[in-house]
Design a protein around this nucleic acid. Structure first.
Length: 506
DNA sequence: AATTCAACCAACCGCCGCTAC
DNA sequence: AGTAGCGGCGGTTGGTTGAAT
């Protein structure tokens, strides 16, 4: 029985090795079927001889003229990867490794382009090296990019944004690579890493049991966020589909990466501390990590994936990160309309998620709108907090003491001298710890499932509540395949009401 | 000594873009 | 304009090797 894919494959093989058919079937030169597998030295000699005589190219003619029972593709590959005289053998040098990392940070999985920058090296070689490295770093829970590269790339992006433009699409001119044009939104650089470095409680994010969706996202967020390798448009959707595979056999939110990681929205205006952990074993980068956090991860985890990464998060490593769609649709909820993120839409229109409550971006984040808004937000938060206290005092599920503790905690979090206006990703996630339902840093208690139904008055307060990451997170989760169902149950209510508020206010 | 596992490597596969017809 | 062939690219797979247990 021939499956569709098999049939397709046959067709493809026929196309790819048409010469083979011609020679074996048509001319039937006696070579028999095309050979596969490792090349022998004799075959190598034949191929080298042929190329020396006829030059490179016209690979399908090799079999005809040399009697080699290899398809043109195989010949080309063999020549390019092993027989070319200008190939550099041996392990990568430190300089080459550094180049690879930098190039990957800039252009992603463009192996051929990278190979062009590394004379004597092949794309396959670089690709293998990178994949191996990724696995190693992933296993070690380290980010894939060292701090220097992060900073370099980040600066490049800032330059771009400062110029009011965002480089999108392919880098047509290889020289542009040197100019640090990237395809990744700036926001990618700011998420977890900053929070990790600033918030003492941010590490709880990575304390989430490995393999959870949160971890996946945390992993997907380059702790030293650089960029996401360019994915072929035709593959992006496919990648995004697989980017959130079943994790630990239980979690499959069916969401593209960044749907949660983006909740590590930035809250600090300080210069980004791109002090990401790095591969300490990487000899090119000797300085110690500036901010090594337990549980930090490489860009692609899980099997980056793929990512990206296209690595199924759980097994195969996807090296590509998926779409930015949730990054944009969710994170921009915390980004001012003037945020450069908006211009990033063009980064990859294919990956933008369509119906994801764009209205939420209408709510300005106090974290991104200056001190005044921040003060207002804090004021509002306090107001909500008081309301929350009174509401919770009557909540049979909690004792008065619990309420007091919870609110005290919330206040503490909100008056955090370090980041009075911030939610760390960790805090966001911790809010959804089903144990108590209390949110450590929740400003208005609104997202708390038990109290969600108490938020019935549309208005500014509710808007503010909806701006809260836990609300957004809940709505994001609610898009999943039932994962975090407990939380979703509560948040869906919030979200519904939030949307109702939005409708009302609109 | 046997087994397991990770790292490495080579090769294949499928898709895409370009070009010639 | 449509199609087929070709070359190239990126992802993936499978085999080998060596270290660890």
């Amino acid at each position: 029985m021939v499956t569709g894919s098999e049939d397709k494959r046959r067709t493809k093989c026929r196309q790819d090795s048409l010469v083979e058919d011609d020679s074996n079937g048509g001319t039937l030169d006696g070579n028999g079927p095309l050979k596969k597998g490792p090349w022998t030295s004799a075959e190598d000699a034949i191929l080298v001889d042929y190329v020396n005589k006829h030059g490179e190219g016209n690979w399908n003619a090799v079999q005809k003229h040399s009697g080699l029972s290899r398809c043109g593709k195989s010949c080309r590959l063999r020549w390019a990867n092993h027989l070319r005289p200008d190939l550099k053998k041996g392990a990568f040098t430190s300089e080459e490794e550094r180049q690879i990392i930098e190039l990957h940070a800039k252009i992603g999985n463009k192996w051929a382009r990278m190979a062009a920058e590394l004379p004597g090296r092949t794309d396959n070689e670089i690709k293998n090296y990178w994949n191996t490295r990724i696995k190693r770093l992933q296993r070690a829970g380290l980010p894939i990019y060292p701090p220097e590269v992060c900073l370099q790339v980040f600066n490049g992006i800032h330059e771009i944004h400062n110029m009011g433009t965002v480089q999108t699409g392919e880098i047509a001119d290889p020289n542009l690579i040197q100019q640090d044009h990237f395809e990744i939104p700036e926001v990618q650089f700011k998420n977890l890493e900053r929070n990790r470095g600033v918030f003492p409680y941010s590490t709880s994010l990575v304390d989430i049991p490995a393999g959870t969706i949160l971890k996946q996202n945390a992993d997907a967020t380059p702790s030293c966020p650089l960029m996401f390798p360019t994915i072929h448009p035709s593959k992006r959707l496919r990648d995004s589909e697989t980017f959130f595979p079943v994790v630990d056999g239980s979690v499959n939110c069916g969401l593209p990466a960044f749907s949660q990681l983006d909740f590590a929205y930035e809250t600090i205006s300080e210069p980004i501390g791109l002090s990401a952990p790095y591969d300490s074993g990487f000899n090119t980068y000797e300085q110690p990590p500036l901010d090594v956090l337990p549980g930090s991860h490489a860009l692609l985890n899980g099997s980056l994936p793929s990512s990206s990464s296209s690595v199924p998060l759980s097994g195969a490593m996807k090296l590509e990160l998926p779409s930015l769609q949730f990054l944009e649709t969710r994170q921009d909820s915390w980004v001012t309309p003037a945020s450069p993120l908006a211009s990033l839409e063009s980064v990859d229109t294919l990956i933008h998620s369509p119906p994801t409550e764009p209205r939420r971006s209408e709510y300005l984040s106090p974290r991104s709108n200056g001190l005044l808004e921040a003060v207002l937000y804090e004021s509002q938060t306090l107001k909500n907090l008081k309301r929350c206290s009174s509401q919770q005092a009557s909540d049979a599920l909690e004792t008065p003491g619990d309420v007091a503790d919870a609110c005290a905690t919330r206040w503490e979090m909100h008056t955090d001298p370090i980041s009075p206006l911030s939610h760390s990703a960790a805090s966001v996630f911790s809010e959804y710890t089903p144990i108590t339902g209390s949110s450590p840093d929740e400003p208005g208690c609104v997202a708390k499932p038990e109290t969600a139904n108490q938020v019935s008055t549309p208005g500014f307060e509710d808007k503010m509540d909806m701006m809260r990451p836990d609300v957004l997170l809940g709505s994001c989760w609610s898009l999943g395949n039932g994962c975090f169902s407990e939380q979703v149950t509560g948040t869906e209510t919030v979200e519904a009401e939030a949307l109702a508020c939005e409708d009302t206010s609109n």
